[in-house]
Amino acid sequence: MSVTVKIPTPLRPLTRGRDSVQVAGATARQVLESLEKECAGIRARVCDERGEMRRFVNLFLNDEDIRHLQGLDTLVKDGDILSIVPAIAGGAEAGSANSLRGKQG
């Protein structure tokens, strides 16, 4: 199975600038393994040390969030598009603002 993985802009340094990468695999997990072989370091941005998806990253298979399918075990087929979509969030609430000041140069 050949699947196209769409890469968001901030992760493109890991794909040598490519906005999409074609890799093989029968499940979303296998696709990420193939992607890691081609673009070292990218799987760690999507999955944690246990190999499960990070909380703030989504994978969409075509138009569907794979969390609503079978997660990383979701089957993929030839020609599918797997998009890495960040869960971008934040907010004005200051939280521990002192630590921010401490870390700013």
């Binding site: 934040g90 939280g95 870390k103």
Partner: peptide, 11 residues
């Protein structure tokens, strides 16, 4: 905010 920073760093 620190919330902004933590969420950006996590991603």
């Amino acid at each position: 905010s620190e919330t902004d920073r933590l969420r950006a760093e996590e991603i």
